[in-house]
Computed example of a mutant assay.
Amino acid sequence: MTDCVACGEPLTGRQRKFCGSACSKRASRAAWIEKVYGITLAEWDAIFAAQGGGCGICQRPPRPGETFHLDHEHSKGQSGPVRGILCPYCNTRLIGRLKDHTKAQLMADYLREPPATRALGRVVIAPGRPKKKRSLKRRRP
């Protein structure tokens, strides 16, 4: 009798390598992560735990059935250092649209030291839009 490659449970009947589809999916995911990113599934779990169990940017935990993305720098085509694990939104909409770290640094500098504050030498608080005057509704006789 042999055991499941992924979890070690004994195999029964016609099972050859895995005890079920969950173990098969986990093993194929582990193989893919190791092949593409060069880290093991245990290392992926360690990175995710170090981030507090959520996205590395927005800190949101994954929803049921949602798969988070392993973010890495695209400095030389597809290869580059692994940075962390992100939710799909932060990976594709935030990091993906910035393209490189220089734009992210420029954005952070802009928010920390706005050009208006440097030019005027003081912080100006915008008063906001004036509230609309409410018109009295006319009653029909």
Score class of each variant (00 low, 15 high):
residue 7 C to S: 09
residue 10 P to F: 08
residue 13 G to H: 07
residue 14 R to C: 07
residue 24 S to Q: 15
residue 25 K to R: 15
residue 25 K to S: 15
residue 26 R to D: 11
residue 27 A to D: 05
residue 28 S to D: 06
residue 29 R to Y: 11
residue 30 A to H: 04
residue 31 A to H: 07
residue 32 W to M: 14
residue 33 I to D: 03
residue 35 K to P: 00
residue 37 Y to V: 03
residue 38 G to D: 09
residue 39 I to G: 04
residue 40 T to C: 07
residue 41 L to H: 09
residue 42 A to L: 08
residue 43 E to S: 09
residue 46 A to L: 12
residue 48 F to E: 08
residue 48 F to P: 05
residue 50 A to Y: 04
residue 51 Q to F: 13
residue 53 G to W: 01
residue 53 G to S: 02
residue 54 G to M: 01
residue 57 I to Y: 00
residue 58 C to E: 02
residue 61 P to E: 02
residue 61 P to F: 02
residue 64 P to E: 14
residue 65 G to S: 08
residue 65 G to K: 02
residue 66 E to H: 06
residue 69 H to N: 09
residue 74 H to Q: 08
residue 74 H to L: 12
residue 75 S to R: 11
residue 79 S to D: 12
residue 80 G to I: 05
residue 83 R to V: 05
residue 85 I to M: 00
residue 85 I to G: 01
residue 88 P to A: 03
residue 89 Y to W: 12
residue 94 L to S: 00
residue 98 L to Y: 14
residue 99 K to L: 13
residue 100 D to K: 02
residue 101 H to I: 05
residue 103 K to F: 06
residue 104 A to Q: 08
residue 109 D to S: 12
residue 109 D to H: 13
residue 110 Y to V: 07
residue 110 Y to C: 08
residue 111 L to G: 04
residue 118 R to F: 11
residue 119 A to Q: 04
residue 124 V to T: 10
residue 124 V to S: 06
residue 125 I to E: 11
residue 125 I to W: 08
residue 128 G to W: 05
residue 129 R to T: 05
residue 133 K to T: 05
residue 133 K to H: 05
residue 134 R to G: 07
residue 135 S to N: 08
residue 137 K to L: 12
residue 139 R to V: 12
